[in-house]
Design a protein around this nucleic acid. Sequence first.
DNA 1: GTCTCTGCAAAGCATTTGCATGTAC
DNA 2: GTACATGCAAATGCTTTGCAGAGAC
Lengths: 147, 147
Amino acid sequence: MKKETKNLALKRLSAYLSEKKLRATSQREIILGTFIDMGKHTTAEELYEALKKFDSSIGHATVYRALRLFVDAEIARELNFNDGSVRYESIVGKEPHDHIICKKCGAMVEFLDESIRQAQDEIAKKYGYALKNRSHILFGVCPKCRR
Amino acid sequence: MKKETKNLALKRLSAYLSEKKLRATSQREIILGTFIDMGKHTTAEELYEALKKFDSSIGHATVYRALRLFVDAEIARELNFNDGSVRYESIVGKEPHDHIICKKCGAMVEFLDESIRQAQDEIAKKYGYALKNRSHILFGVCPKCRR
DNA sequence: GTCTCTGCAAAGCATTTGCATGTAC
DNA sequence: GTACATGCAAATGCTTTGCAGAGAC
């Protein structure tokens, strides 16, 4: 299942690369594979560290450039949890969703609320905007930390 | 009306300062007054530049520290439009609201949707979180830029 | 007088950029 | 062979911090 996600992501990458006449490099494949393996909400720095473990030759800049590429290719999306660095999450084979995060311990829940999505669509329509991304993050204190 | 907002903000600041046994300094007053005057979605850097115009002695760090103070005092809130720096907005005498922003030109509309607020409350309740902040920003292409 | 606040400059991060070299096509 | 991609190191931009002196209470 993780394997399938990875294949799907790689397929999407190569489709995007050939569509845009960009080059398929081993780095891009390796970075994408590692990114998918890591699970979610990854920092460029965290991904760079993970990559170093089995291919120490991949540079800092390449990781940053690859992540931007993945966003353009609609393989990943940016998340900003206001913790100092941008995080990336794979959107391959995933339901759209939002996040609620504990301000104390960082515990996070993903949720999907259809009524919110619809309201967002209506708002965009009302103001004549073509909706591209939705950044919706709730901050609170989780049950454990409330005790 | 702007005057009243400013007075309200200053009052809230001094209440917070005495509650927390912190000191009322002229810098804090000046920074708050200028912040309110500037209107909304201000960067620390922008505020610093504005301040330099009539009091060149206020330092960088003081502006950053003051803005954090205003957030703690519930005079301002942080906004992250993913444009590289944190923005601050006064919440004194204002309805709660969210933003929809044009990815091309930056045009921005504020909106308030009660159904979204309620859905957020329900989600927080469902997962047992005590809701503290809501970060909800939509990105799209505005009517002008779509033409 | 004490303790906090300020201004300055330096430090700290995350991210981007310039450039020479490498490599996909 | 010709772009485009990469790695490196330097640069950039935002924000924080350490510290000595200034100011509030």
